[in-house]
Measured scan of single mutants.
Amino acid sequence: NNDALSPAIRRLLAEHNLDASAIKGTGVGGRLTREDVEKHLAKA
């Protein structure tokens, strides 16, 4: 659900052409954090 993404996370996802649903969020309520996105990028 993109409504739960902060603007910074949306921008980071867009810059790397990532789909938020492909990344498991570890923030409050399962929200994506910058660390989640960076860890996903490091794996790729």
Rank of each mutant, 00 (worst) to 15 (best):
N2C: 07
L18A: 04
D3M: 10
G25V: 04
G27M: 02
R31P: 02
I23A: 01
L13D: 00
D3W: 02
I23Q: 02
E15F: 14
N17M: 08
A44N: 14
H16T: 03
A8T: 08
H16I: 04
A8V: 08
K24Q: 14
L13Q: 00
D36W: 01
E35G: 09
A42M: 13
L5T: 06
G29I: 03
D3Y: 03
I23D: 00
R10D: 11
E15S: 08
R11H: 15
A8Q: 09
G25M: 03
A4C: 07
G27C: 00
L12G: 01
L41R: 02
N2D: 15
V37L: 07
L32E: 00
G30E: 04
I9G: 01
L18Y: 03
T26I: 03
I23P: 01
D19R: 07
A22W: 10
A14G: 05
L12F: 07
G27Q: 02
L5Y: 06
D19W: 06
E38C: 09
L13T: 01
L12K: 04
G30H: 04
G29T: 03
L5N: 05
R10F: 07
L5I: 13
T26P: 01
K39I: 10
E35F: 10
L32D: 00
K39L: 14
L32G: 00
D36E: 02
P7V: 10
A20R: 06
A14R: 13
A22E: 14
V37Y: 03
E35N: 08
E35T: 09
A14P: 00
V37M: 03
A14S: 08
G29Q: 07
L12V: 06
D36Y: 00
L5G: 04
L18T: 05
K24M: 12
R31A: 15
E38D: 07
L5A: 06
A22Q: 14
N1M: 13
E38R: 08
N17L: 05
G27S: 03
D19I: 09
L41W: 04
D36N: 02
N1W: 12
T26W: 03
A22L: 13
G25F: 02
S6N: 07
D19L: 12
D3C: 08
